[in-house]
Design a binder for these strands. Sequence first.
DNA 1: ATTGCAGATGCAAATTTTTGCAGAAGCAAT
DNA 2: ATTGCTTCTGCAAAAATTTGCATCTGCAAT
Lengths: 143, 143
Amino acid sequence: MSCHEHVIDQLRDAGVRLTPQRALVLDVVYHSEGHLTADEVYEQVRVQSPYVDLSTVYRNLVFLRQQGLIGELRLEGQPARFEAVRSGMEHHHAVCTACGCMVEVGHCDLAGLEATLLSKYGFRLEPIHLTLSGLCQQCAASA
Amino acid sequence: MSCHEHVIDQLRDAGVRLTPQRALVLDVVYHSEGHLTADEVYEQVRVQSPYVDLSTVYRNLVFLRQQGLIGELRLEGQPARFEAVRSGMEHHHAVCTACGCMVEVGHCDLAGLEATLLSKYGFRLEPIHLTLSGLCQQCAASA
DNA sequence: ATTGCAGATGCAAATTTTTGCAGAAGCAAT
DNA sequence: ATTGCTTCTGCAAAAATTTGCATCTGCAAT
Ligand SMILES: [Mn+2]
Ligand SMILES: [Mn+2]
Ligand SMILES: [Zn+2]
Ligand SMILES: [Zn+2]
């Protein structure tokens, strides 16, 4: 629980309790490169703290997502996956429905949509992770 | 199973089998106004055909979503919901994280995003239902 | 009308995710 | 350091969703 102080500060500022379990879940997600399932997070957590329960991991993943600290990917036909939301690197994922490959899409690419939602519906889009579906360049070409 | 011939034609054109169970699931979703959970679809289906299994309903909901005939809403903290995709009325849902209210967002509002994805990443966005998160006008005002 | 077969179904079981609740623990105020 | 309030945790159970498999069926070709 040494790194990611800025993230932990963000939690404290939100008036939120920082339990060891919560810190561990955060730490596991932030120390991993990729996109972890709840179960993978759970296994990593248990290496350090074997009595943490899977439901606690789930609850904290939901919680941290609501706080905007982690993003959740919902890929077709597989369990949800989670990843760190690193300031300045916010992105969404566009998944090819043909080959399953994934393109990372900058949150800035949604600026236009954000503006449209605000002006047309008064709705303020939050930078919550989206999983988009479509065809990647190669699959579109070979079709 | 009398109406929605155009939808059924769309299935036939896709070279897909039209089983009574599939037709029923389609019918239930298309005859309902709103946004049904899998279980609600199941109950409606069973009124007409009591031996249809819940897993068949799930499989057909997934299937029909993949065919683009129904949309799936994933609202925070509740089971997935499904609705008809009516030609010319394609829309997404923007859900307020504060009050839970829902704004329907035309698919056309994503035209800009669609263009950006194509030019920047070569990715062809499919008109698959999205659930967006943010603040509605009232909640944003009172904050 | 019969046949063949890819794909769909029902059922049971597994997997994934959520929830209720009693006790535990963070943390702000003494 | 102690207290009190509130939120969080572990555990057990439920609910939601997916899967394996033997059998069945839509439907295209004969
Ligand atoms: Mn990513
Ligand atoms: Mn709708
Ligand atoms: Zn592809
Ligand atoms: Zn609202």
